[in-house]
Structures are given as C-alpha cells and as structure tokens.
Write a protein that binds this DNA or RNA. Sequence first.
RNA 1: GUGGCUAUAGUUCAAUGGUAGAACACUUGGUUGUGGUCCAAGAUAAGAGGGUCCGAUUCCCUCUAGCCACC
Length: 392
Amino acid sequence: MKIKTLKNSKARLCEIKTNHGTIKTPFFMPDATRGFVKLVDNSMLNKINIQAMVVNTLHLYLRPGIKVIKKAGGIHNFINWDKPLLSDSGGFQVFSLIHKNTGLGKISDKGVVFKSPLDGSAHELTPEKAIQIQFDLGTDMIVCLDDCPPNGFKRKDLERSVERTILWAKRCRKEYDKQAMSRQQKPLFFAVIQGGMELDLRKKCVEELIAIGFDGYGFGGMPVDKHGNFLKEVLEFTVDLIPENSIRFALGIGAPQDIMECFKMGWDIFDCVIPTREARHGKFFLFQRKKIFNFQFSIFKKIQNSKFKIPNSQSFYNALNINNAKFSNDFTAINKYSKLLELQQHSKAYLHYLLKLKDPVGQRMASINNLEFYMELMKLITHSVERATRNA
RNA sequence: GUGGCUAUAGUUCAAUGGUAGAACACUUGGUUGUGGUCCAAGAUAAGAGGGUCCGAUUCCCUCUAGCCACC
C-alpha cells in the first residue's frame, strides 16, 4: 500500500493493491448487498466509474447459496464484475435482525444462531464460517465477524460486545491463515472496532485487534446516535489509534458531509446505503456548481495555510426531496451537468412523477444520479488535494 | 317504468341523537457495514331542501344521483 500523507492534515491519499486491481483512496463503495446495486446494472456502474462494491456474506450465503457461487467460479464470475469487491461479514445484519426481534436468534460466544428472514430456516454463523464463506466467494477484501451492538447499549453490554469482537477476531485470524495456506491469492483482511461511544473501550478494542494483526481496521457500530447526530468525536478518537500503514475503513459512512469529515480525520474507504436507498425514496444530491470552485479553492488554501478544514457541506451541494410538490411542474433537467444523457434529457417533473408512482424507472434514475454525485465527490476531494500538494 | 338499497375525507369504508374515525392517497420531516422500506408529524369530510327535537351526520318526508332486481 502506498500512502501519501498531507503536510498540515491527517487526511491522506493511498493506493491499495487488490486481486482485482488497484484502488485509489479516498473511495466510496456502493452497497451491492445481494451482488447487485439495486436497479443499476454493471454497464451503468462502469459508466459512472464505480471502483469497487460491497457484497454481503450473509445474504449471499442464504441465497443463492455458496454452492451456486462456487460452481459459477466465484462471486466475480457469478455477477460478471472484474473490479474489486469487499464482502461484509454479515455481523451487522444478523445482529440488527436479532436486536430488533429477539425471537429470531441467539448470540453466544460460539457464534450466532438465527432464523432466515427468507424462509424461517435455522442457520448458524460462526467466526470460522464467516471467513470460509468469504474465501469461497473469492472477494478481494474480507471482514471479521464482529458483535455489533445497537444504539443505546449500556456499558456492561458494550464491554461484552468488545470482548466477543476480540475473541472472534482471533478465531477469524486463525481461520484466515488456515484458508490462505492453500490459496494463491489472498484477500485483504479487515477487523472491526467496537465499543460504542465509550472511548476507553474503543481504545482497548483497537489495541487488541492490532496485536492480532490485520491489513485494515473498520469502524463498527452505528456512526450516528439515536438522535441522528454524527459521532465525530468517537470517529476521530478511533482513527488516531489505527497504525498509519493500515487501511482505515469507515463502515456504513455516510452522508456526503460525514464522508468529508472522515476523510479529513484520516479514514480512507467508505460504504453506505444512503446514495441508493435514499434515491429510491426521493432524496436527490446535486452540486451547487457555482460554489464548487470556492470549495476547491478553500481546500487548496487551507492545506497551504495551517489547519486543513473542510468547508460546511451546505456551501457546495443540495439534498433535494424530489417528491416535494414543488417539483411537479419543474421542467428543468434532472441534472444538466451529468455525463449521462438520461439525466440531462429528462425533467425533474418527470422524475417526480415516476417516483410518486414508485416506479423502478424513476428509482433507477435517482440512484444513478446519486452514485454519480458520490463518485464526483471523491474525485473532487482527490483532485483538490493533489493540486494543493503539488503547489504547496 | 316499478320495487329495493345506498349517499360521511381525494378513494374505499366505520362509528354516533351532544368532540365524526381508519386504511390508502395527499403535504412535510427523518432514514448512515440495504426491509425495493420503515417511522414521525400535518391538512382534508356529512348530496340538496324541509320536518321532529334543547340539539340531527344519525330519526322522518321530498328531491337529486348511483347501484341492484324485475318489466
């Protein structure tokens, strides 16, 4: 991994080598939980320049099942995608399933027993099994099974989830080493840091995980509190504890301004459902073009001066709710600056109408608009920082 | 043409002689390792005319409209 650190900032630009090509950070991965980004096909993802995606161990294990994927020659072949893929362990999903509905499963030190939400059949996920499945998928980056606590967990419960996360990380490491012996290509291996909002638990967790040794470390748990406030302090505290030569993965983050904040702190890679899920429900990201120059200029200036401070998000983009009645008669282009003809040529009123009907045609257009926005956001940060460091 | 039934929110339906509810639709928020969702808040209603009654959306009459059956 190549790392380019910035003079007056903790932010950094990295190049990460994977089995399916090199990725440049900061980068954002859309969630393709079941092996596809909802409503968007691969040729469109390539057009938008998506570098990598996140698939989910648990969802793919339940359906179509590992047998099918192995028979297909791995997940890349199965979904016809030749760029990097990261598989999430399924920890977040199975834990949120159980925490929301205690009847659906049981958590013990051994692993998690749960009922499939698809057909009610019983399954067990253990740390070893999570790693085996991910090797079978053949993803380029894999993640330890972790004990993911819900928002509002008390200290005692958080302590137990940290203990279990560490215990499981050890078992995952052991299974990884066993699996890796018989394979030519090894995936990059991530552990997940838990501890909720308790800083000493975060510290303990990350120190123990570093002692075990991983290629990268992820921020676990919800990055927002129950009121929806972004946990900036916890994220900043945690990233400072991760070694510089490790990849820093901000799981589930986030809103555009949260990604900006995290990049500034030194997080490298991101994934989130926001651009696609919210697109389906009408939230729609657009740059304020006139303000982008100011935005770039302020990054440039702030790197040259003392503290690198990312400007307020409100100053350069809008999050519109295309469902609002005012768009029913707005015949301007969905996004006249888009590279994609369908976003240039269709009107906001048309998209409003399609989304009111919950039609996939509209949901798709909104999804690709938001994904293009996120990719441009990454490009904008990277270019601004590169230009600034060149001239510094 | 005759007989019967019905008329309450944008829609489909409740309850009620004294403050008219729901679902969906509508309006506005929220959604952070994907439930193709979910949650929260909000606006909106008694066909027309007459009668009984302290008081009628409710009971009675006439008209109007719709539905069903029969000719």
